[in-house]
Simulated assay, not measured.
Amino acid sequence: MPNQPASPSSRRNRPAKPALTREGIVSTAVEILRSEGLQKLTMRRLALELDTGPASLYVYVQNTAELHAAVLDELLGVVDLAENSSGTWQARLERVLTSYTAILFDHPGLAQSALVSRPSGAHYVRLLERLLALLDEGEVPSGQAAWGVDLLLQYATSTAAEHSAPNNSADSDAQWSALSDAIQNADPHKHPLVAGHATALLAGEPTARLSWGFRTLITGIENTPLTS
Rank of each mutant, 00 (worst) to 15 (best):
S120F: 11
Y100I: 10
D106Y: 01
A102S: 06
F105H: 05
Q144P: 07
P108G: 10
S117P: 07
V96M: 06
A133I: 12
E139N: 11
D136P: 01
A91H: 13
D106H: 00
R118N: 05
L132K: 08
S99A: 14
R130L: 07
T101G: 05
Y124W: 15
R118M: 08
E137A: 13
P141A: 13
S85P: 00
E139F: 04
H123C: 04
N84A: 15
A133F: 12
H123N: 11
Y124N: 14
L104S: 11
S86I: 02
E139K: 12
L110G: 12
G138T: 02
S99I: 08
L93P: 06
L93D: 09
L134S: 01
R126K: 15
R118A: 04
G148R: 12
N84R: 15
D106G: 08
Y124S: 13
A133G: 13
S113A: 15
G148E: 06
I103E: 03
A102H: 05
A91I: 09
G109Q: 08
R95D: 04
G121I: 02
N84Q: 15
V96S: 06
T101L: 03
G148A: 06
L110D: 12
S142C: 06
L128K: 11
V116F: 15
P141F: 08
A102E: 14
F105K: 02
T98D: 15
D106I: 01
V96K: 02
E139R: 12
D106S: 11
A145N: 03
V96T: 12
F105G: 00
S99Y: 09
L115N: 07
A114K: 06
S99M: 14
L135A: 07
D106K: 06
G143S: 06
G87V: 02
S120R: 14
F105M: 09
S99C: 13
A102Q: 14
L110M: 15
D106P: 00
A114T: 05
G143V: 09
A91S: 13
P119Q: 13
G87E: 14
R118D: 00
L131D: 05
R130I: 07
A102I: 04
Q144E: 15
N84M: 05
L97A: 00
R130D: 07
R126A: 15
S85M: 07
Q112A: 08
E94F: 00
S113K: 06
S85E: 15
L104T: 10
S142V: 10
S113T: 04
E137R: 06
G143E: 11
A91R: 07
P108C: 06
P141L: 07
R95K: 11
A122P: 02
G109W: 04
